[in-house]
Simulated assay, not measured.
Amino acid sequence: MITHLIFDGVAESSLGVGIDIVGSAARLAASGVVDAPHAAKLLRQRVVSLDGQPVQSGANRTIAVDGAFSLRGMGASDVLVVPGWFSATETSIERLLSQNDTQRGAAALGRAASKGVMLAASCSATFLLAETGALDGQRATTTWWLAAAFARRFPAVSLAADRMVVEAPGALTAGSAFAHADLMLAIIARIAGPSLAQWVARYLVLDNRPSQARYMVMEHLRVSDPALQKVERFIIDNLDRQITLAELANVAAVSSRTLARRVHAGLGMTPNELVQRLRVSHATHMLETSNVSVDEVATRVGYADPAAFRRVFRRFAGESPRGRRIQSTGAHQGM
């Protein structure tokens, strides 16, 4: 059984796509398109709230539910999914987490985890999942613009903010709202087999998107820490050469270890990842706005080896430099 647990403010798109993906998987399995003999039982689903009452969506519409959340009969073969809310700021997510129903929800998720129920959450709901402690010592992801806030609030979680979906032994997490589709496909693959998940993706025309890095905007990740602002400016001014951690620490007037802590607390990443992200950000701008060759772009942002640049660009942008240029050219031609 897959249970969708929803709260006031839920993103209707996330809930809807989750229901449709599970329903499509069940119908495909029943039709015999995919050999999944046990899928019918595993892919039953329901939508619940804590008290069984309708909830108000983020669009301020009333959403009916099938009943109240209950752990009775739930176990290791069940999945408890929490679709996210839209929260644009750290303040808004803190306000959500302080509400009585979300605190009760965190407690309910914790009890479910203790029974072996698989937990899954996307977007800001990953914060609720982390509140239970179920992600401590494990890798997880969250919506990219709240990555720094997540890293500060849950230092025991190994955050992989560039990943679309991260699978851990007892929990799955996904990035921003539409990553809920990727999350549900991962759930289908885990409980009913990857073949069924692949068929669902084909029928619903869902692309494979392992990374949300291409959607990240560096401006959203900036902080007011003057030391980090100096570090960022130094990196930008020296993009065309190798930069050492010692240099960055000297610019910030702190030790290398202290700088690493402050960069992680402020941005949810390592100093090296900050350097790489800024390089990729500037490389993207050049690819989109000039005819400079990919190899020359690599040199201008500090990579003597074009192959290394391509690997780093793909990791942080989610596509190749050539793919980024072609996509940008096509967009401009379509205007």
Rank of each mutant, 00 (worst) to 15 (best):
A249S: 05
T244Q: 09
L245S: 11
Q198R: 13
G193Y: 01
Q229M: 13
A246N: 11
S320W: 02
S224Y: 06
F316T: 03
Y215E: 13
T299N: 12
V254A: 10
A283I: 03
T289G: 06
A213S: 12
R202N: 06
A197E: 00
R300Y: 04
A265Y: 09
M216S: 12
A252S: 07
T289C: 07
Y303D: 01
R190Y: 00
S320I: 04
K230G: 10
Y203G: 08
R279P: 01
E247K: 05
A201E: 00
T299Q: 15
R257Q: 13
S320D: 04
A298D: 06
H220L: 15
Q242S: 14
P306L: 03
I243Y: 06
N272P: 00
L204Q: 12
L278C: 07
A252G: 07
A283P: 04
P194N: 01
E219N: 14
A253C: 10
L204W: 03
V251C: 09
V297T: 07
A192Y: 00
V263I: 14
L248F: 04
T284M: 08
F309N: 05
A307N: 12
L196A: 01
V263G: 04
I236N: 12
L221H: 15
H282V: 12
P271C: 09
S256R: 14
V200H: 02
N291P: 01
L274V: 06
P271Q: 09
V231R: 05
V292D: 09
A201W: 01
A192L: 01
A192I: 00
T299W: 13
P194D: 01
S320N: 03
D207S: 12
A253F: 10
L204F: 08
T258N: 11
R279C: 04
A246K: 14
E319S: 09
P226Q: 09
A201F: 02
R222I: 11
A308T: 15
H282K: 14
A213K: 08
R279D: 02
V200S: 02
D305I: 08
